[in-house]
């Protein structure tokens, strides 16, 4: 037992011979919020997909609380306690907002009425309660992002993977989401790993940042350290002047 909630060890993945992720290792301790950053195409989402089981790694392992979860099916990894959102949101379009989240809640509460109650509670906290009877396809993009988070939370995960949930939000909306996640983390001790381009959110939330480029980890440290890290400045910040 390493004591880490999430542990990646030498994770690698190739697509048709192309190296998408190579030898990536890092850990996220229980109760922490970490961020995964890097330019587009650096392999961040591929790493997420390997943690969540959507892709099987070619090499390396993923451990959750010391147990190997890599190679499991996504639903088994959800069982184990990993919740995720999708970068390109995937709402159940033809179902209402409440039912979207209820599907997530059913995972730990097999009775529909109970699951629905739990879902409604989560929706209130994310400010979607008024829209709960709307069809998910009628939501605006920021609301769809919130719905992604709500649905993943409804599965009551130990580790939450957030893939660019701030993208497309206005600055005030980013602040609301940051506030919500921070409060959630402090109140429940939920461990969060987020992929994010919005540096404002990364700086506000993450205790540590892992930087990847061309599928490899190039740096890891606190946000302050990262902004001073020469390799990071070279590969990432020079290219994107978002900071």
């Amino acid at each position: 037992m390493s004591g880490a909630r999430l542990e990646l060890e030498g994770l690698g993945k190739r697509f048709r011979g192309l190296r998408a992720v190579h030898d990536v290792s890092f850990t996220v301790p229980g109760g922490a919020i970490h961020a995964l950053i890097g330019p587009n195409g650096a392999g961040k989402t591929t790493i997420f997909n390997m943690i969540a089981g959507a892709l099987a790694p070619d090499s390396g392992v993923v451990r959750l609380d010391g147990q190997v979860i890599s190679g499991f099916r996504p639903d088994r990894i959800c069982d184990a306690g990993v919740g995720r959102t999708f970068q390109l949101v995937k709402p159940f379009k033809g179902l209402s907002v409440l039912e979207n989240v209820t599907v997530g809640a059913l995972h730990r509460r097999p009775h529909l009425a109970e699951a629905r109650e739990a879902a409604a509670a989560i929706l209130s906290r994310l400010g979607l309660h008024d829209r709960r009877h709307q069809l998910a396809e009628s939501l605006t993009l920021p609301d769809r992002k919130r719905l992604e988070v709500a649905r993943a939370l409804a599965t009551e995960p130990k580790l939450l993977l957030l893939d660019e949930v701030m993208a497309g939000l206005r600055p005030t909306e980013v602040d609301v989401m940051v506030g919500f996640l921070r409060e959630l983390n402090q109140r429940t001790g939920l461990t969060i790993l987020l992929i994010e381009h919005v540096m404002r959110a990364v700086m506000a939330l993450a205790a540590e940042v892992v930087v990847v480029n061309y599928g490899e980890k190039v740096a890891q440290g606190t946000p302050q350290e990262i902004t001073r890290h020469q390799a990071v400045l070279d590969v990432y910040l020079g290219e994107q002047e978002a900071l």
Partner: peptide, 16 residues
């Protein structure tokens, strides 16, 4: 219903 709407998203929230 979740599978009908999006099987990948369904599986991610624990649907076998």
């Amino acid at each position: 219903l979740a599978i009908r709407e999006d099987a990948e998203a369904a599986q991610a929230v624990g649907v076998p």
